[in-house]
Simulated assay, not measured.
Amino acid sequence: MSEAACAAVDAFDLPEWLGVDPVTWTAVGRLRHGIVPGVLHSDTSDHELPCDLMAGDVAYPVAVVDEATRVQIHQAWRHGQVHVVRRGDRITLGAPGTDFTAPRVLDAVGRLAKAVGAPPDHFSVRLRVARDGSGWDRGGQ
């Protein structure tokens, strides 16, 4: 696995329903190589958007992003924002660090709500509990 090409996304270019509808982000897989696959889904319509979480500081076995993107992730986070990028056909929320705790997931999704102008209480998060009962299914690298 190598660094995936990332292109910055302006929140104003995201679908309008994200700022209007109640929305749930759902983890659909485990953390692997710094990425948690997920999906944003409108709670009131059939709208859906693939949306992953990315731990921007993962560097082993390879860096998940290039250095410039990693710096942008840290700058956005420091200013209370989340760096949104497109990786292939998927929107991805970048956060500093190497993994995602439940509070970090809530923080990243809350920052997305802020970016699209939605009240934070319009966004929900759904995580899966690990089979071994040790916490949410964030897996390993």
Rank of each mutant, 00 (worst) to 15 (best):
I35H: 08
A63I: 07
V39K: 13
F123P: 00
D99S: 15
G117C: 02
A68V: 12
R104F: 03
E48D: 12
A7N: 04
R87H: 08
F12G: 13
G133R: 04
F123N: 00
R128F: 06
H47S: 15
L53F: 12
V65I: 13
H41A: 15
I73C: 11
D89V: 13
H47Q: 14
P103K: 05
D99W: 08
D99Y: 06
P50M: 07
F123H: 01
D137C: 05
V125H: 01
V39D: 15
P61T: 10
P37G: 09
R30A: 11
A63H: 13
T24R: 09
A118I: 00
G29W: 10
G135I: 03
P96W: 04
E67Q: 10
Q72E: 15
A27P: 01
G34K: 01
S42M: 07
D89F: 07
L53T: 09
D21V: 01
P61K: 07
P22L: 03
V36N: 06
V85S: 06
P96A: 02
G133M: 04
E48S: 15
D57F: 04
R70N: 10
G29P: 05
Q75F: 02
T92I: 04
S2M: 14
A4V: 14
L49C: 12
E67G: 07
L49E: 13
R87Q: 14
R138M: 11
K114M: 08
S134T: 14
L18E: 02
E16F: 07
A11Q: 00
A4D: 06
F100K: 02
P103I: 09
A76G: 06
L18C: 01
W17A: 05
E48W: 05
L40E: 06
T24H: 00
D52M: 07
R78V: 09
V129M: 09
T98W: 00
Q81P: 00
A11D: 01
V28M: 06
R87I: 15
S2H: 14
P96F: 04
T69D: 13
A8S: 07
A11N: 00
D10F: 03
T26L: 03
